[in-house]
Design a protein around this nucleic acid. Sequence first.
DNA 1: GAAAAACGAACAAACGTTCGGTTTTATACA
DNA 2: TGTATAAAACCGAACGTTTGTTCGTTTTTC
Lengths: 224, 224
Amino acid sequence: MNFQDFKIQFETDTPQIYRTVFEENSDLIKVKKAKVAVPNLEKIFTTTLKISNRSGFKGMNLRDLSAETGISLGAIYSYIESKDRLLSMIIQQVMASIRVVIGDRDKQPDNPVDRLFWIMCTHLYLSEVMQEWFFFAFMEARSFKTEGRNDAIESELFTEKLLADCLKEAACAGQIECVDPEAFAAMIKPLLQDWYLKPWKYKRRGVTVDEYFTRVEKFIRASL
Amino acid sequence: MNFQDFKIQFETDTPQIYRTVFEENSDLIKVKKAKVAVPNLEKIFTTTLKISNRSGFKGMNLRDLSAETGISLGAIYSYIESKDRLLSMIIQQVMASIRVVIGDRDKQPDNPVDRLFWIMCTHLYLSEVMQEWFFFAFMEARSFKTEGRNDAIESELFTEKLLADCLKEAACAGQIECVDPEAFAAMIKPLLQDWYLKPWKYKRRGVTVDEYFTRVEKFIRASL
DNA sequence: GAAAAACGAACAAACGTTCGGTTTTATACA
DNA sequence: TGTATAAAACCGAACGTTTGTTCGTTTTTC
């Protein structure tokens, strides 16, 4: 599978990420008609990501958000409960996407080595389609309160654990040599993160996701 | 050289990082006596890093800073020109430290492969002694204005270029095989960054800097 | 014409910053 | 050593601005 295929499938599988947001938060969203709410939620979320990733979530004020979305201050508050709640909605959405897309047992290959690279590849692809979301979650996770903070840490360790499990299984099966799977997995993670943390670097150099994955794959295989 | 040696040397070489801050900004610091100013600058900077790394620089207000340092609001303003200026002072200091410590030609080994690992090791050690500074710079660099923003990007690419040069030189000399030094260097960088971006992870697992360096070194050597 | 949605002026709290007064420190002379 | 005095440093109430949020009214939709 290449990125183009993934993107198409992702867009058909999740026809509207904002519809999910709308349905899951229908209790606190005052606007009841999906036809009206969903496009406005999209505006609010994408603009929040745009402004926040430039100057931080705390640095974004609701007047700027209002101006850039074209939705009045009052109207915004019929879509969100509070600014803080908007933050946690975004982060929760990212964590949910990771769990659903990367944790999908049905699509994971059985062979542990294949599964390892499938997870890496899928993680990269997902972080490419949702680059602004991933960047946001990484940068703003720390300003979470204690409860959500643990969720964020768990999420960071979730992928790492999946990777470590592949390595462990492959090592047991004698497919690879890996003395410390946990340590090895901890080195793969930052390589995946670099892709969505510094997109400007790879755009400037004209590197595509697929090329980046090939690089990382070669790099990892050499050490196995 | 191990971390303990580096730490001792660092602390004697730079007896007071805050003395440098004091001298370089003597024009805008209203307190004139070093004996008074330096300890207070230390309080202000370390506390700023502590609070900011918890809730972001924008999330820190000067009343909290005042309370945690024990210095009144008014007094703080005889040490800093403005809150924004405090931000740029910290980031500038980090970039200067990197240039001085890692860019030090006299200490760099001549052999390109040795130099490669010397840079990696020194970068790790420096980011360990100055963990909070490095974390802060990474997280807050984006909220810089256009001028400082370019500095931050250049700084990110500075270490990478040093690494790439080593690889290029070593490849020319036939010491290693490396088709794309730039790409390879770009993969080393995030491995170094992970150390100061997620210290909680490695502390929790009881991994020391020296152990971490050994891991990364092995990992890299396997791909050369 | 009634329900749904959008609006933006208005409010209170929080913020960065200033400033006039107070305390502390250093210096000079007895 | 003790005291007077000027300079240096500190203090925090007060100011103006910005911020998140609300609410009564207007506009749109069906």
